[in-house]
Amino acid sequence: MRVSDRIRVVGGRREYVRFSLSQRLQHIFMFVPFIVLVVTGFPIKFPDTAFWSHSINLFGGIDTVRTIHRVAAVVMIADFAVHVFYVFFNIVRNRTPLSGMHLLPNLQDARDIATNIRYFLFLSEERPRFHRFSYIEKFDYWAVFWGMFIMAGSGLLLWYPEASGQWFPSEVIQIAYVAHSDEALLAFLAIVIWHFYNVHFNPRVWPANKVWYRGTLSEEEMMHEHPRELEDILEQLKRGRVRRHDDDDKQDGAAGRDGDA
C-alpha cells in the first residue's frame, strides 16, 4: 500500500479517509442518473402497470420520458468513462502494484465468505475481518462495472437501431432489447435489495452509512467494518509511513492517490 494521507484529526478524533471528493462525486453522478433511468425506463418495461403511469404523467408524456432517459444515460456513461480514466490514470501515475488494487477479488474474499457463512449458520462465532473492501462491496462495484457495459452497450444499439443493423446481425439487436430490459431489472433489484440493505437497512448501519458524502470513517467504524485495514494503517503509522494531517482540508483526491478507486 502506497503511503498516503489516510488519517485526519478532526476535533481531537481520528478520522480515516475512505473516499476522496472526486470518488464521492463519481458516486453521486452515478446514482442520480440511475434513479432517473429507472423512473423513465420502467414505464416501458412494464407498459401495463398503473404505478409507472405516474412517472409518465409526471414528466408530461412518453416523448419527454424518452428524451430524459437518453439525457440521463449520457450523464451516466460520461461518469463511467471519467471513472475508468481516473482509475487507469491513478494506477499509471502511482505505479500501483497489484497488491495495492484493493478492489480486485482475491483468495481472502473466498475465505471471508466461508467465515461469514459459518457465522451465519451458528457454526462459529468468528466474523470475517475485512480489509479495505469487503467481498460485499467488491460485488457491488463489479456488478455496476458489468452492468454499465451491458446497459450502455445495449442502450446505444437500441438508440440507433438502424445503424446497429448496418454493423451487426439482427440477433444482436434482439439480444440488446432483451438484455437492456432484463439487466435493468437485475441492476434495480441488486441496488434496491442488496446495496440498500448493506448501506441502509442493515440494522448495524441503519439509517444510513454516511461515508458516501462524508468520505471518512471514525476509528470505531473502522474497527467494526474494516479491522484489517485499520491494523495495516496503524502498523504503517508506527513505521512513520502514513502522513498525518491535522484539520487539513486538502482532503480532495487523498485516498484517490492510492489508485484503488
Partner: peptide, 22 residues
C-alpha cells in the same frame, strides 16, 4: 438472463436473510 437474475437474487437475498437473522 432470467437464470442469471433468479440465481443472483436468490444468493443475495439468502445472504441478507442470514445476516439479518444472525
Amino acid at each position: 438472463f432470467i437464470l442469471l437474475t433468479a440465481i443472483t437474487m436468490a444468493l443475495l437475498f439468502s445472504h441478507i436473510l442470514l445476516d439479518f437473522g444472525r
